[in-house]
Write a protein that binds this DNA or RNA. Structure first.
Lengths: 166, 166
DNA sequence: GCGGAAGTTGTAATAGAATAACATCCCTTT
DNA sequence: AAAGGGATGTTATTCTATTACAACTTCCGC
């Protein structure tokens, strides 16, 4: 039986008012862009919002489709990828290589660790910030003279809720 | 300046007689398949050999091309992917999600940890087996009730040789 | 305001990675 | 020899991502 979740568990793990996640992420993104002197255009903001729609990573073509259906526009793939590239560059989203999908960055202010726990059933992805993981990686790398630049951790498994359901 | 490599550093990090890597990998694969009662066919063996050709991960379509050029065959993508699926299933190769590429598994006998240091310059990928990394991951996962199934670590950076050259 | 420069988006075509569906072949077992 | 299962071949297609170029917007100095 899965252990009871602590109140410190990431929001994505528990039921929560998700509209607040989204608005918080958008606010933070606005500020971040102001600070960096770059423009969070309508398109970029919309893509960020779509990515934040849930805690499940979203494919570029899913975003494309939602832009087509919900908004009036019908942009081509490059338009979406460019928006995503922008958001990636400014640490507002992450790309999950194992899923070819994108997800909102939960803590853009910190060093982006790019550590994710991905539930294979409900597809929810939770971002971690475990310095212990990074440290273990750094130490191993140092041992063979490898200079770490972008560590990436993606762990597939079953989240606590899906374990309960099983 | 990068630190001197210890003699325990993985082979892939240093110059070495690579034909021995390959033949050792093939031998081990043969045995593993016998043990498991599955068939290491000519095609599968050939794909494994191609993947082991170097310590740089190889794309499925690269394999395809080499099969076309070096051997007489001209198989379609499904043929190659099926061979790769087989090899993956039996832990004889790994797939690097961040590169869409495949690489020989250095220690199929152990639990496959799927930890890689990938040099962005020479593209060499070194497989690690750091239980410390897995442990850090497990602990973090346990904290939020997540059941780890397939941890995956891919670290992009600069290997020691490429640091020296720079 | 005007014009240019930089940045952003639109559009069409294409490249790259992976799979579906079905046919054929081969090996084993009886 | 026949049957069954596993392996491979073949064709077409899906999904992911990028190249190259055109059009438009925003910003800034004049």
């Amino acid at each position: 039986m899965p252990p009871r979740l602590s109140p410190q568990a990431p929001l994505a793990c528990r039921p929560h008012d998700h509209t607040r996640c989204v608005s918080h992420a958008l606010d933070e993104a606005e500020q971040r862009c102001v600070t960096r002197g770059v423009r969070l255009t309508e398109l970029r903001k919309r893509v960020l919002e779509l990515v934040w729609q849930s805690h499940q990573p979203l494919g570029a073509y899913d975003i494309l489709e939602q832009l087509s259906q919900q908004d009036g526009r019908r942009p081509g793939p490059p338009t979406v990828y460019r928006a995503l590239d922008f958001l990636l560059e400014h640490d507002l989203v992450h790309r999950l290589a194992s899923l070819n999908a994108f997800i909102g960055c939960s803590h853009p202010e910190h060093d982006q660790a790019c550590q994710f726990l991905i539930c294979r059933q409900c597809r929810t992805a939770v971002e971690l910030e475990q310095s212990a993981i990074n440290q273990a990686i750094s130490e191993a790398a140092q041992g063979i003279g490898f200079a770490v630049e972008q560590p990436m951790v993606e762990v597939v498994g079953l989240c606590s809720r899906c374990r309960e359901d099983a």
